[in-house]
Design a protein around this nucleic acid. Structure first.
Lengths: 401, 401
DNA sequence: GGCATAAGTTTAGTGGGTCAACAAAATCAT
DNA sequence: ATGATTTTGTTGACCCACTAAACTTATGCC
C-alpha cells in the first residue's frame, strides 16, 4: 500500500466528483474551524468559491446534518442579514475510549467538539488482565452508546487510546509496559462484547491522540508543536500544521526510550523515562514508588526541597531530550501535557534552560514551552476526533445522494 | 502564510482548472517515475483515467517538451504497438550548486535525471571568505549556464546546497560552522555576478538535498528513511514516502548536535559530532586533525587497529543517535551517506548493534542500515531535483496555452 | 417610502472529464 | 495471403461541477 503510493507517486486520478468532494470538505472545514458562526458569503470570500457554489455545497452539508443553520442575529450593518452556519450539535458523533494506567473511560464527541456523553472509572491497572480491563471498558461503553442511539445520534465509529505501541499497519497492541500487556489483540477481545462488536475501534497511541485534542484546542494558532505526555511512561507526539505525524507504524514520539547517557560513556546510562518518568520522580522525591501524580504535585506545592530538586532534575532531563527532538524535527514549540502540565511551574524553567543552552537554532527561533490546554483526559477526546477526522476529510461519504 | 493555512484548514478552492492541473501532474509523474518507457494506455490503466483523457494530457506534455515520444519497439504480443513515452532529454533542466568544506561545484540535471553539464572544483574552504568562494562558484556556473543556453535548454531555476543552517522562511544562511560563515546573505552576494543575477538560487541544507537525490535513486523502493550525511559536520534528513521533511524552518535532521552525554550526568558531555564527526575521527584515529576523509578510508583498509577502533566507537555513537531518531520519527531504514558510505564496512555493524539493542520497536520492525546509492556529490543533484520538483508538481505552469 | 447594501438563488455558459464507437497497426490462425 | 483478433490511440456525444451575471430577498439609513 505504502509502496504502491511511492511508486505511483501518490495521488489518484481526479474526476469531476473529486472536485466536489474537495470543495465539500473545504467548506465543512471552514465551518468547523471558524471560532464563530460563518455565513455562506463568508465561506465564499474565504475560499475563493462563488456564492452559488458554496450555497449548493452547504445544502448538501445541511441535508447530511453535518452543519446547521442558526437563528439570524440582529445585523449591525446594512444589507440582508447572513444566516449563521455552525457545526451541527449532537447529530453526528464519534466515541473515544482510553485505557491508561490509573483510569479508563469513554467519551462521545460531536463534530463541534462537544462532549455528548462520558463515563470514566479510576483504578490501578498496572499489571492488569487485558480481558478483565477491556470488559470493564465495554461496560462503560454500553450505556454511552445506548444513550446516543436513543437520541438518534449517528455514530461514526470508535477509537481506543492505549499507553503503548500499537501497530497501525497490522493491528495488535505490541506492548504497553506499564499495563504489563504484550501482544494483545485488543480489537478481538473487545469484539466479544456485543455492544462493541459492530463498532470495532481503531487503536492508537495515547500521546498521539492527546496531541490531536491539543491541536484542536489550539486551532487558529500556529499548529506545529511537540506534545509531551507525561504519565507513568513518557510519550510525545509531533504535530505539524495541525496534523499528527505518526511515522511508519504509528510509533513516532517514543521519547521515553531516548538514550541520554550518564556515567562513563555515551553507550551507558539511562533513558529519559528512567530520569523523568513518574516512578523515577517518586523515587527521587522520596515518595512511595507506586504513588499517584497528585502526591508529587501536593508535595511540590508544599515546597518540599527534595521534591523540588527532583522536579528540577527531571525537567533538565526532559529539556535535553526535547532539545534532541527539536534538532531532529525542527519545531519551535513544546507543549507539556499529562502530569507535566500540573508540574509545569516546577519543571518549565529547567526545560527552557536546557533548550536554550543546547538547541543550536535557538538564537533565531527560540523554542517556546507551553502548558497543555486540552483539559482532562485529552486522549479520549483525541480518539473521538481521530474518527471524526474521516468525516471532515471525506464528507461526501456521509452526504445523501 | 503557515498560520493562514492552519486557520483555513489547508487547501484552496478547486476549480475545473485544478482538475486538469492535478491530472497533468499525475500523468507526468507516471512518465518520470517509471523505470522503463510507458504508453498512454499504461498510464490510463495505472491512474484510472480514460485513455482519451490521458491522450489529451500527454499532448500538452509533448507540446511543453516535458515528455518525448520514442521510436516504437517491436511489439511482443498482438495488437497495435504502443508509443513509448519518456522524460524529454535535455529540453528542460535545473542547475544544482554546492559549496562544501572541501569542494564546490555546479551540475545541470534534466527531467530524466541526466547530468547535462558539470563543473567541480576541489579545495579547502574552512574559514573561507564568502565573497571569494561565491565568486568562484559563479565562475563555475557561468560556462554551465552558457552551454545550456546555447543548446536551447529551458533552465527552470537554480538551487544551492550549503553545509549549515539555512532559514527557509526568511532567507539568509544563519551559520555554517565548518566554513566559518555566519549570517551571510548568500543570495545577495551571488546576485552581484551577472550570470546568476537573473537566476537567484534557493538555498537549502546539504543533507536535505543529498537525501532528495538518494530518494530518487531509490524510486520504486520503500521511500521512507533517514539519510545520514557524514562530512566534517554530521547532518541528517528525514524522507517520508519520497518527500523530504524539512521542518518548520528547514532545520530538521541536525543530529550532529544531538546530546549523547558522557561523564558525570546527562546534562554534561558531548554531541554526536564530537564523537563521530570527521575531525573527531581523525583525532581518535591518531591522524592529523585537518586531514581528508580519504586518509581514514585508506588507514582502515590497511587494517590499522587504532583506526578500526575509532571507527567502531564512532559507529556506536552514531547508532545511539540514530536510535534516538528512530524513536522520535519511526522510520525503519537508515542510509549512510557522505564519508559514512565509504566507511560503512567498518561502521555498519556497530551502528546496527546499537539500533538493535536500543530501539524498543526493533523486535517488530528491524531497522535496516543501507549504504547511499546516489553517487558522488549527491547534494548537487538533489539541489537540481529540488528545483525540478516545481515542474513536476505544477507542470501546467510550463505548458503552452 | 425610497435608496444603498449585502446575502443568497437562479440561469446560462464553460471546461474537463467519461463513455462508446471507431480507426490504426500489429500478431495469430488457417 | 488473408481475415480474425487484439491492443492502442482518437473522435464525438454527453455530463457534471464550477463560474458569471442577473435577480430576489432582507436589512439599515435618510
Amino acid at each position: 500500500m505504502a509502496s504502491a503510493r511511492a511508486t505511483s507517486g501518490g495521488g489518484r486520478a481526479a474526476r469531476q466528483e473529486s472536485l466536489r468532494h474537495h470543495n465539500l470538505a473545504l467548506t465543512l472545514r471552514h465551518v468547523l474551524d471558524a471560532p464563530t458562526p460563518v455565513s455562506r458569503a463568508d465561506i465564499a470570500a474565504a475560499t475563493g468559491l462563488t456564492r452559488a457554489t458554496v450555497s449548493a455545497l452547504v445544502d448538501r452539508l445541511l441535508a447530511a446534518n453535518l452543519v446547521a443553520e442558526l437563528e439570524p442575529v440582529a445585523a449591525q450593518r446594512a444589507g440582508r442579514p447572513a444566516v449563521p452556519l455552525a457545526p451541527a450539535k449532537g447529530t453526528v458523533a464519534a466515541v473515544g475510549m482510553e485505557v491508561n494506567v490509573d483510569y479508563l473511560g469513554v467519551r462521545a464527541v460531536d463534530l463541534g467538539g462537544h462532549v455528548l456523553q462520558q463515563r470514566v472509572e479510576e483504578g490501578d491497572f498496572r499489571g492488569s488482565e487485558p480481558e478483565e480491563v477491556l470488559g470493564r471498558l465495554a461496560a462503560l461503553a454500553g450505556p454511552v452508546l445506548a444513550v446516543l442511539s436513543a437520541d438518534g445520534v449517528v455514530i461514526v465509529g470508535t477509537a481506543l487510546a492505549l499507553p503503548g505501541l500499537v501497530d497501525s499497519v497490522t493491528g495488535p497492541l505490541r506492548v504497553a509496559p506499564n499495563l504489563g500487556w504484550r501482544d494483545v489483540d485488543v480489537v478481538a477481545l473487545l469484539a466479544e462484547h456485543p455492544v462493541l462488536a459492530a463498532m470495532p475501534p481503531r487503536l492508537a497511541n495515547e500521546a498521539n491522540l492527546a496531541a490531536r485534542a491539543e491541536a484542536r484546542a489550539r486551532r487558529g494558532e500556529p499548529a506545529s508543536f511537540v506534545y509531551v505526555s507525561g504519565e507513568v511512561g513518557i510519550g510525545a507526539a509531533i504535530v505539524l500544521d495541525g496534523r499528527i505525524f505518526g511515522g511508519r507504524h504509528g510509533w513516532s514520539g517514543e521519547i521515553g526510550h531516548m538514550a541520554l547517557g550518564t556515567a562513563g560513556a555515551f553507550d551507558e546510562g539511562g533513558t529519559l523515562e528512567s530520569y523523568a518518568g513518574q516512578d523515577a520522580l517518586h523515587e527521587a522525591a522520596g515518595l512511595p514508588r507506586t504513588g499517584s501524580a497528585a502526591d508529587i504535585v501536593a508535595a511540590a506545592r508544599a515546597g518540599e526541597p527534595r521534591v523540588l530538586a527532583a522536579l528540577e532534575r527531571a525537567g533538565a532531563a526532559l529539556g535535553v531530550a526535547l532539545a534532541n527532538v527539536v534538532h531532529v524535527v525542527d519545531v519551535d514549540r513544546v507543549v507539556l501535557g499529562g502530569i507535566y502540565a500540573d508540574l509545569a511551574p516546577y519543571l518549565r524553567d529547567a526545560v527552557l534552560a536546557q533548550l536554550e543552552r543546547r538547541v543550536i537554532t535557538a538564537p533565531w527561533a527560540a523554542v517556546e514551552v507551553d502548558v497543555a490546554r486540552a483539559g482532562r483526559y485529552p486522549a479520549m477526546t483525541g480518539a473521538a476526533l481521530e474518527v471524526l477526522q474521516a468525516v471532515v476529510e471525506e464528507p461526501a461519504a456521509w452526504v445523501p445522494a
